[in-house]
């Protein structure tokens, strides 16, 4: 009898040791009001209440970035992209570290992407934005921005005129007509920072998606390999399936595509990704997905690869350590960088 009791005790101890390992449920929350996009958070947490509480904290963190990077609204007592576009031509303006880091990253990425990603292109992009908004509202009278206006605006897009002073974290526009537009990197940057913060303070394992900027970290206990499956949207909206499904963790997956934001003029689609050289949307690819450790870099690279010719884009991605890409072409075919296949869901 004693022996059986001892065995039962052994069993009990073992069962408990095994049980307290990963016993967490998985939850999802969706927000619509930040970064002008859909944000979904999926994480493993102890209880629905704990998850809601952690989500509220993450939301507040993201809201901080949203306000700093907002191009269209000013907030009382806050220096953001909107107020910089208004005031930075008059003299150096001190900004929050987060905004300063974003702009510094913008200048850096301008060099690495051969000028394809340029946060100083606001003058050109706002023209496209206004015509796109008007064209979406009233499709019958949709029009393209006049080329003369685009060319005039393109005279004021030099990244050299964005003066960043790291000592006192100030921003100054040397060209009074320079306008910032951080749309190509803001979501990726915010996803990166907020994801790292969430990993540090909120969850062991989670996946955040900021309008297609996906940051995944930790072990997904609901996957046999502990990874997170990320579906890459098919630019061809008649297609049945995702273009690809990749399994990742502790890394970012970002897609730039012509289907995300566009309007139609005379039956032709014009998307929101504008080539700084031609001042028009690029048409080489319909979508580019980048996987790499840093979401901000992935976001910038996906825009750059969308605009660069295939050969130059391939060279750029192969020269960037730890980054892989998938290009979707208008004819429905797709090409991969050399190491992309390793991420495909098995």
């Amino acid at each position: 009898m004693k022996r059986i009791t001892a065995v039962c005790l052994c069993l009990l101890v073992l069962l408990q040791a095994a049980a307290c390992g990963e016993r967490r449920d998985r939850f999802t929350e969706t927000w619509f009001d930040l970064f002008d996009t859909v944000i979904t958070v999926t994480a493993c947490d102890e209880s629905p209440a704990a998850f809601r509480e952690h989500c509220a904290a993450l939301r507040e963190e993201l809201q901080g970035y949203h306000r700093l990077f907002d191009l269209y609204h000013a907030y009382e007592g806050l220096v953001n992209v909107r107020t910089l576009n208004r005031d930075a031509k008059n003299g150096p303006v001190a900004v929050d570290d987060r905004l300063f880091d974003l702009l510094a990253f913008g200048k850096e990425i301008y060099r690495t992407t051969k000028g394809k990603v340029n946060v100083c292109m606001g003058a050109v992009l706002s023209l496209w934005h206004d015509y796109r908004e008007a064209g979406t509202e009233d499709p019958a009278n949709a029009a393209l921005p006049p080329e003369t206006a685009l060319k005039e605006a393109a005279k004021h897009v030099s990244a050299d005129d964005l003066i960043l002073n790291p000592a006192d974290k100030t921003v100054y526009f040397a060209d009074p007509l320079l306008q910032l537009d951080v749309g190509a990197i803001a979501k990726g940057f915010a996803a990166q920072r907020a994801g790292a913060w969430a990993k540090e303070t909120l969850w062991n394992a989670a996946v955040l998606s900021l309008g297609g900027n996906v940051v995944a970290f930790g072990v997904n206990p609901y996957n046999s390999r502990g990874l997170w499956n990320v579906g890459v949207e098919n630019p061809d909206e008649t297609a049945e399936d995702f273009l690809a499904t990749v399994s990742v963790s502790d890394c970012a997956v970002v897609t730039s595509g012509d289907y995300q934001r566009y309007y139609t003029v005379n039956g032709k689609k014009y998307c929101h990704i504008i080539d700084p050289e031609t001042l028009f949307p690029a048409r080489t690819f319909t979508g580019v997905t980048v996987i790499c450790g840093d979401s901000a870099l992935a976001d910038a690279l996906s825009t750059a690869l969308f605009l660069l010719p295939e050969r130059e884009g391939t060279a750029l991605i192969e020269a960037t350590p730890g980054a892989e890409a998938l290009w979707a072409k208008p004819d429905g075919s797709a090409i991969q960088s050399s190491g992309f296949a390793a991420y495909l869901k098995k």
Partner: peptide, 8 residues
């Protein structure tokens, strides 16, 4: 199934 919390 109980430990891994998956019915898969």
């Amino acid at each position: 199934a109980a430990v891994m919390r998956t019915a898969r």
